[in-house]
Design a protein around this nucleic acid. Structure first.
Lengths: 343, 343
DNA sequence: AAAAGCTTTTAGATCGATCTAAATGGAAAG
DNA sequence: CTTTCCATTTAGATCGATCTAAAAGCTTTT
């Protein structure tokens, strides 16, 4: 065998084929688990691969086959534990499909999102899962369609005609309002934060609808700072109002954590004379005191759903768009109490 | 121009070259910003690229050039916000170097780590940043070296002869012990958790050394559950001891959060008659009540350091291994008080 | 005017797989 | 014994870039 390992060069499929006394084409069929190849030949090739320490070269394969086994994931903010959980769900499903995740952070900026999108195309991803940056235009999605790059929207939606995985935020808000109302609360505030996007609007609308359908005033919406350390200090905003709320629903658990601390600072007993509900039900909710009652949106599940949507679409690019909207669950703990006590 | 856009096929460099009346080779030089090409020619080619909507094909380039502009990142657990912040630091630096991150989760399992590593090789990553799974053997690193795949260890180290980015955990422990000692505490517990790895050992050893050098007993080490919800219930472990501790240092902030809740449940006033110090200084530390005094390890910075180490190594594979060990900072807030009050 | 020395451009081979279309070999059918 | 059919196997073109070594244009020197 003159051509064994000349120098330091990579072991190629041709090397394997030679060693197994078959053609390059046959060796290729073995790798791809084609049923065409005979059992003994297959064994011989696999043996050769093992002996030579062969490593498949995706790059070369992709060039010819037009599939990269690669999925782009674009999130607006990695630092937020919520997105980390989402990512974890995506990664698990993509990985078990034998593909890999190429990760990018848009910083919730459309320009960066465009840049990152371009880079994904350059790397030839088979599809992308995107949580669209606030302010993303529908044109963005049309562009992608024109490039025929399969896309799944996650958590936020720009268009109804494109696959989407998220949670039923409006229903979650209704659950929160219903629960507080059942405890006798009539004046309920809503603490919001951050950039405006579909998930933001769904929550606000969900809150307003739920309040109005019970004949309650839905206008007690207060914006709190983005910086986590400053949220506590914003608790006073709850008390400058014309009508004094006895409860507050938070846009997410980060706000809930901050306001809980701020209320504590003011000597308000959360769960006793003031009620507080979070949104997302992150793991910390269980570790807080009082334990946080929160609407669970199960980010890991949403991520897994998004990944499955993309895999399905890759399998059949012509299938109609689907929307997988996860049910939310109100996780009741200790941060709410009956209105009677608040009086 | 007969060959414009035949069907739906991708615009190739050859198309661009034809449109600009140059050769494929010249067009290639333009893309790679070679100084060899004349200014007018460059302009013409760039114009053609724009007109045709050309997208660079990394896959093809990589095949020939043996560089994929791709970096593998392997973390043991995406769900942990600490790793999410780390990832964020890595991504930012890798991105600004014009490369992309391929992400994988080892689940802190060596077998999965091997699998994932193989996949990274198949995708032809230029290098990897790994937080090694607990129980990773030095052989793993030698293997990588043999494959000459550049690697940077992050947060945990298996070998001293390979690039490493982390924090000075031992010094951080000393800061915590020193601070508590300065407040008069003599009996200090250490609450630990999770799999055993270098970062674990460094913290434990740092704690023991710091205690011993002050003549204090370093044997009050208690293991708490991994599940965040169960940590609070484990607070009783602090009180079953022969000698009653007046303070506890936590392996990380998750434990601190849990124990803080557990102590609250038992009516212990953290910061008044019991002191508690966290480790990592995650953003939540500021939002807790009492605000958590914690040793900051700055995961985003560590991630950025790791990414820079890898970029440097890619630039010069022969350079000697470096270790970038970040200083920790004790962030004093409210969760500790003087021993006098505890009495 | 020829030679030498630049700068700029290019043809053609190459990377390592996949794909197409055809060849091969053996068993079954005529 | 030839023909047909099926299961395997294969040669050679191909994907879209980069690389090498040489050619083509210029200017400057002799």
């Amino acid at each position: 065998m003159p051509f064994e390992d000349k120098k330091k060069s990579r072991v190629t499929l041709l090397d394997v084929a030679r060693r197994a006394n078959v053609s390059r084409a046959t060796a290729s069929l073995v790798i791809r688990k084609s049923p065409l190849v005979g059992a003994d030949t297959r064994a011989r090739v696999e043996e050769a691969m093992r002996e030579l320490g062969y490593v498949y070269n995706m790059g070369a394969a992709r060039l010819r086959a037009e599939r990269s086994h690669t999925v782009g994931v674009i999130v607006p903010n990695l630092t937020n534990p919520f997105f980390a959980e989402l990512l974890s769900g995506i990664e698990a499903v993509i990985d078990s499909a034998g593909m890999v995740v190429i990760l990018a952070n848009s910083g919730d900026l459309v320009e960066r999102q465009d840049m990152v999108m371009r880079r994904m195309r350059e790397h030839g991803v088979d599809g992308v899962i995107v949580c669209p940056a606030a302010g993303t235009e529908p044109a963005f999605l049309h562009q992608l369609a024109e490039w025929d790059l399969p896309l799944v929207q996650v958590l936020r939606q720009i268009s109804e005609e494109v696959d989407y995985a998220g949670a039923d935020y409006a229903a979650g808000m209704r659950q929160a309002v219903d629960y507080l109302a059942s405890l006798g609360h009539r004046t309920i505030a809503f603490a919001v934060q951050g950039p405006i996007h579909s998930a933001y609007r769904e929550r606000v609308e969900g809150f307003c609808d739920a309040m109005q359908s019970r004949g309650l005033d839905p206008n007690l919406i207060v914006r709190v700072p983005t910086q986590i350390g400053e949220i506590a200090d914003a608790a006073h905003l709850l008390f400058g109002q014309v009508e004094q709320p006895s409860a507050v629903i938070c846009f997410n658990d980060v706000i809930a954590l901050g306001l809980s601390a701020g209320l504590y600072d003011r000597g308000v007993q959360v769960g006793q004379n003031f009620s507080l509900i979070g949104f997302d039900d992150v793991t910390d909710a269980e570790a807080m005191r009082p334990r946080l009652t929160s609407v669970s949106t199960a980010p890991v599940t949403i991520g897994a759903n998004a990944a499955r949507l993309l895999l399905d679409r890759l399998a059949d690019p012509t299938r109609p768009a689907r929307r997988v909207v996860n049910e939310t669950i109100l996780h009741i703990r200790q941060s709410c109490g009956p209105m009677a006590i608040s009086a």
